[in-house]
Design a protein around this nucleic acid. Structure first.
Lengths: 186, 186, 186, 186
DNA sequence: TATGAATGAGGTTTCATTCAT
DNA sequence: AATGAATGAAACCTCATTCAT
């Protein structure tokens, strides 16, 4: 039998994501984790402590840049990057789901969410630079991070993930051409 | 005295947005609306009916395109458009807030959210075309709609709204240059 | 069917007195009052509100002085007075019981208890004066009030109430003799 | 480090007195005693056993009669006696406090309380006789014991202890004069 | 001897919903 | 149409007690 505390967290993550924090009774968490009800409160005195523990468990999104960047090919690099980000975000999809819901009422959740967005912007920016993009890299990174984040929050409802290839090509061209036509701005 | 039914909806909108659907008792809605408790359930048999009624009340976002578009100046047009969208979304900010939270558990809310996103994409696309943009207008519209929506959902926590001027300039240039260099793709 | 709210208070009074405030679940109060559990909390939002309501119900002890005083006979007056006080206190015996237990944790209860003691001292003093006692009437009143209160709080456990006749005779003599021998002190 | 068992009892005494028996969790006793939670139940299998052990620890009130009695001066003897009793009762004030609260629900506590009252009556009686008082010594002892006990139970809430000098003088005079006028009754 | 993880019954309280008026 | 008293299921949480180590 795996560790009971972990099973409780797993169960909480799934149920919170599926139904929301308020709509999930701790008794159901216990049932899904197959532990007695009291054990949930033994490990997590208040229900909200489950949320905090879940946020602490959040993996730090880190892209393997060497495996993603295709030097000189911004479009291809972006395609691989988005695929990598999709994988990363999917691996904690239920938890992400939860974050979106509870960000307002729980400041620690909100902070974790902001940190993640900033991290994603940073990863995109790094890949763009490594791939040889020039021009308004920061603007492109922010736009793309918004789009990726948006897909993973709201568009999670979509039957299947929307393909972003056109947008990536657009961005790649913009960054390539802008580099050709004139020197990069500060 | 304004209509009791409307006052109930107003109260529900504020409280749902502030605390979430589950965390808002109907009794508190009645109290804020200054109506007797029974009246809430008289108009809205189930609590969830309040949510549906709120979604029905959602204004349809419609930009006054003539007032926004500056023919031939894509960047300026985008700046005005984003300002107009910000105003529109702010006017129903609390309700938007609510939609983000409850989209998962209530399909009608989710649908309303998707419709709104599609409407925003359409508005951006229309403005871009009217302003004379060429090239990958659809991609640009989707990216910008994502960024605008993102700011209004998640970034509502930000102390003050992030200025999007750099991103708008970036998009405008990309669309202008791409139009110069070659014909717009399908 | 008598008023449900009153039946709840009656049940609470009996159970609190018998087992103590903390040891009495509201569910048992509901059961004894033969009302659904929710009704208890409908009338008394918090359990402690039951205590407050009980204290509010406390009858004000008021002795019919004309029926008690035998002019010129202090001992006889005291005997009648103690009998009258015993009756008064017995009529709210369970509630008194409760007051002794909960005085520490609930200030409103403590205050009610003090007020009652002062009232009893006043009644004794009035009877003594009307009966023609002289001398240290205040001291005698305080001693007797202590003894009566003590019997009704702690000594409630005694199989049968201790007869106070000897003490009353002692007090009566002291007050009579002291009046004969010398003028009353300030 | 003092004995763990004693530290547990000390902690229980303070907490029971402050909050009451029912309102004090054993875990808080363990925390205040700075012992692991399991140790409390190791020494005291049931929570109620803590109460019994506390009653066993009660010091027997014993007045040093030689130091208190002023032969031939009943009033002065009473003053000294009351001061001595106050000291004795204050030394176990928290425990007394507890006894008053829990006397009803725990017979052993109730018995201990009665024994103590009888002991106090006995001490007062002894001092009165040694001081040369005559007359209704038993009645006076019971009245004074009631008053002293009352002060230490209910009046513990008073901001500062009430001075009993007038009452003591009253009793002393009554006992002195009654001795002069006629032989003591049975 | 000593520990603290584990248990589950039961506590107070909240609240959507019903219904008689 | 409008009201608010009444209901009871179920939520969170507490805590004495047990037990393996």
């Amino acid at each position: 039998m795996t560790d009971a505390r972990d099973r409780i967290l797993d169960a909480a993550e799934e149920l919170f994501a599926a139904k929301g924090f308020d709509a999930t009774p701790t008794s159901r968490i216990a049932a899904r984790a197959e532990v007695p009800k009291g054990l949930v409160h033994y490990y997590f005195a208040r229900k909200v402590d489950l949320l905090s523990a879940l946020v602490e468990r959040l993996p730090v999104e880190r892209v393997d840049r060497a495996a993603v960047v295709v030097a000189g090919d911004v479009e291809q690099s972006l395609c691989r990057l988005v695929a990598a980000l999709d994988d990363l975000l999917d691996s904690s999809a239920v938890l992400s789901h939860l974050l979106w819901r509870e960000a307002d009422t729980h400041p620690s959740v909100r902070d974790a969410l902001h940190e993640r967005f900033d991290r994603i912007v940073g990863e995109i920016r790094g890949v763009l630079l490594d791939a040889g993009a020039a021009g308004e890299v920061d603007s492109a990174a922010l736009l793309l991070a918004s789009a990726v984040s948006y897909r993973h929050s709201v568009d999670r409802h979509a039957p299947q993930r929307v393909d972003m290839a056109p947008e990536l090509r657009f961005l790649a061209r913009a960054l390539t051409r802008s580099a050709e036509s004139r020197p990069a701005p500060a």
